[in-house]
Design a protein around this nucleic acid. Structure first.
Lengths: 347, 347
DNA sequence: AATAATCTTGCAAACGCTTTCAATTGGAGA
DNA sequence: TCTCCAATTGAAAGCGTTTGCAAGATTATT
């Protein structure tokens, strides 16, 4: 799209249905029917065609098929990047489910076309892909408005656009945060620091709300100093931890809005010579693969990431196959995974 | 491909060059020329066409373009999976470079079609993609033989197929391992454990050779017990570390063939209450993002992963644009990154 | 002023496949 | 034996572009 590159005419030595038809002594329509799985083809004819095709090494041209048939069997995925276990786990779920249905994956990282997202979405949605999965889209409406048709199939992951009724998948962020906070409280913690996620995302605000609700429910007064801004990144977690640990009366536990942040918190703690969980308890969110690889292994709120990806694909297929049905929103349950980064407070 | 899904005729309310042509009062060839960047179009005409296109919301149909023009501007990437910082870093480099050239990325994880890789490669290489990048392909020949044409453009990453002269990119594995080992020796270590990578891969054998060469060069006798099998995975590193640490005379340093393994080693060490690097030094290979997030930060041999991806794309474009030129093989330099996981031996 | 060279533009033929429509064939039912 | 229906196949019309060829328009040359 951007930089047009020279385009030579294809040196097309590839064998087409016409060649196969000739070799099998049938019309090319028949060959097409054989390979597109049409049922009313004489068994004998079919065999003859398949044999001829094998001999010639025929392989279907997907481009042509989709141009003619109106369906590419390719799904587009718009993701912010691949630099994050959270994302790659979901992508892996998407990938699995797609393979299951014989669909292919076209990957687009949204940082590629800053400012031109809309144009980009328009282009790929125009024939190239049958549907779009938007993974944690920051500027949802940008994308959605760019869709070529009102009813172009798409599904949102982990971004609830409250204004629209888009099909979407997410997890119980509020409940997860509530559970994590309650767990710390039950361990005896009273001063619990919280590092927010990137608050433009609904998941981040929901987790914050869950944290607050748990405190309130257990009649622990909310200390504003104990909530610091984060961005869902390790660096943000590190910075947030510094602030919290510099507090005169520092927290005995820190709840980071995701595991990446939690790892940043661990780094900060290690650096100060604080023992985890002896001196400070740390809990994360997501349960990315890394969470069980750090030392000590991170206690966290597990999101069923792979499953989220799978469900997204299923929802998308629903949209593609039965556009008339209402969009569904699926919210999967989170689960507290207790490992070794939390303990009762020292005092 | 696998499970054929129902295919309804496209509800094509999309606007085509014909519509634009009509609105602008020119032939559709002219519209095509305007959008395909043909230079000899009257400026005035061009403006009229662009205006009409904007008004109608025209967007090119990439499928049709590539069917007619013989080029899709899509590159296929075959990767084992996305569950590894090593891979995602390279993919990120590929992605960047692709975007630079206006190319799109189609992602295929090879575990999707066990046993049917050949058929699969045939299909996507038949019109859908202009070239293929094979990322750490285990069964290289399977893929290469499946290519529809002898000269179908492809490039190998980090797998040197010595028998063929394929275009490929890799890093100085031998030298990197030599450097790492030498570094440990210079620190005073004499008993240095080594955990191999997955030995089917050339990178793994090269690293093993580099390790041995360094020992030999410094006249340290090779103790076979100090070399254990690994698989480039964290679990393998953990298991390997157990074996090494159970040795009667255990090593004072462990060189893991990649960072994932090194993290496994760290876990094993932590679990035994060994201090890193006080009680044991650990060094890895790759410098994946995680390497600087673990505690203590991992000393490792850096591969320019992002750059490897970028170079791969450039090599691929060379193949596509000038197939007559000889295939190149590029080997990028590794670099020792000293962080905090190594120190002189205790005694 | 006449001729040649250069721009511009339109026409029509692909690209490889799907799908509608109609025709043919071979019984089954009457 | 005649009619009707289902199974099977072929012909042809696209799907939305690109591009070679040729003709008309312009401008440069002599």
């Amino acid at each position: 799209m951007a930089t047009a590159r020279p385009s030579r005419r294809k040196v097309s030595n590839s064998v087409t249905i016409v060649d196969v038809a000739k070799a099998a002594g049938v019309s090319y329509s028949t060959v097409s029917r054989v390979f597109s799985g049409y049922e009313f083809v004489n068994e004998e004819t079919r065999e003859r065609v398949v044999e001829a095709a094998n001999k010639l090494g025929y392989v279907v041209n997907l481009q042509a098929r989709s141009l003619a048939g109106g369906r590419s069997n390719i799904v587009g995925l718009l993701a912010p990047g691949l630099d994050n276990g959270y994302i790659t786990e979901i992508v892996s779920g998407i990938d699995q489910e797609l393979a299951q249905h014989g669909l292919d994956l076209m990957l687009y990282t949204t940082h590629r076309y800053p400012g031109k997202e809309a144009f980009y979405v328009k282009t790929i949605a125009n024939g190239l892909v049958d549907g779009l999965i938007l993974l944690v889209p920051l500027v949802t409406t940008n994308y959605i408005q760019a869709l070529p048709r009102q009813d172009f199939p798409y599904v949102l992951i982990d971004q609830t656009n409250s204004t629209s009724n888009s099909p979407s998948v997410d997890a119980t962020n509020w409940q997860g945060a509530y559970d994590a906070t309650t767990y710390l409280i039950k361990l005896g913690h009273r001063r619990i620091g919280f590092i927010t996620g990137y608050l433009e995302l609904s998941s981040a605000t929901e987790r914050l709300d869950g944290y607050r609700a748990a405190l309130q429910h257990h009649r622990i007064p909310l200390d504003e100093n104990l909530t610091v801004m984060g961005d869902y990144l390790t660096t943000g977690g590190y910075a947030g931890a510094q602030k919290l640990l510099n507090l005169a009366e520092r927290p005995s536990a820190i709840f980071a809005s995701n595991d990446l942040e939690a790892i940043g918190v661990m780094n900060a703690a290690h650096q100060r010579g604080l023992r985890i969980p002896g001196d400070i308890s740390i809990i994360g969110f997501d349960d990315i693969p890394q969470a069980s690889l750090v030392y000590p292994r991170l206690t966290t709120v597990r999101q069923p990431l792979v499953q989220i990806g799978q469900v997204a694909v299923r929802l998308l297929l629903e949209r593609i196959d039965t556009p008339e049905k209402d969009a569904r929103r699926v919210t999967l349950s989170t689960e507290l995974v207790i490992r070794e980064s939390c303990a009762p407070p020292a005092g």
